[in-house]
Design a protein around this nucleic acid. Sequence first.
DNA 1: AACACAAATGCGACATAATTGCAAAAACTT
DNA 2: AAGTTTTTGCAATTATGTCGCATTTGTGTT
Lengths: 153, 153
Amino acid sequence: MAGVKNKDKGKEHKQKNRGRIAGLLRKSGLKATKGRVEVLTLFLEAGRPLAQMQIMDLLGMKLDRASVYRTLSAFTDAGIIHMAYVDGRHRVYELPDKCGAQSCHPHFSCRGCGMTACLEDFHVHYRGTLGKGFVAERQKVLIEGLCPDCKKT
Amino acid sequence: MAGVKNKDKGKEHKQKNRGRIAGLLRKSGLKATKGRVEVLTLFLEAGRPLAQMQIMDLLGMKLDRASVYRTLSAFTDAGIIHMAYVDGRHRVYELPDKCGAQSCHPHFSCRGCGMTACLEDFHVHYRGTLGKGFVAERQKVLIEGLCPDCKKT
DNA sequence: AACACAAATGCGACATAATTGCAAAAACTT
DNA sequence: AAGTTTTTGCAATTATGTCGCATTTGTGTT
């Protein structure tokens, strides 16, 4: 399973990205440590929401549990990521690039395998009153169901 | 062992409800044990979402922690309750009486004090496609904002 | 380029939430 | 009322998340 071979091209590319991402971190007032660069790279490459456990799995013990938590916390404080939703017992984070100030795009969560995805073409409209004195600042929508794979079974 | 005194009127009422609720449980294929009746009664009387901890508090040690968890799980499997949302680290459950098969009513969560509420007059419509092969079974909507109290500050 | 300082990491300890195994108790069946 | 099955209570275990502290790592400075 473990691919030991690295193409030089890929290596170069990684190095370049590394610098770019490190810059991103510094711009947000964070030190560009190895772990942080790895985690941010994950988010940028995954293109989907990630939870702490998934990050650990993808990183393969390269980073301590506590550090991942602290990284997520630091990123959240810095606004680099934000909590997309809570999936069972896991807090799921994502880049805020597709979210407006008031509403985050909806998310999909598969009841079968737990896979999650962003629904960018999915629009939610709501009508009604919150009640006297309430102010709505943000909406979070989660669609639960089955992904194609789990549907087949 | 504790609290031996009961007003007769309240007792009668409680007894009646007890039978009704026990019936409800049996109809769902669950044994009507003391603990389950107590918990379901709580849900019916509270009229608001409840988390395990709140149930424990309200029941006052009458039921073991593990039993509460198992009760909530059994109720959820039976469809008597469902998880409304996750509040911090707590899973909050509620009766599904105000929810349709495919959509639960939205919830409101105050950014200031953390208070949560059900929005029954709030209707959510969504339009768009999930993607090939995906099946939507349920939607959960959370509105975040400020409650009247926190707004004043 | 080397240094020094602040900040982040790893690790272990701790805290809390949730689950499981099993013997004892309670609920349903007849 | 006796027998069967499920549920409960308790203890032990797992999982999730935090915290303190010694050590390492970035970063700006010399």
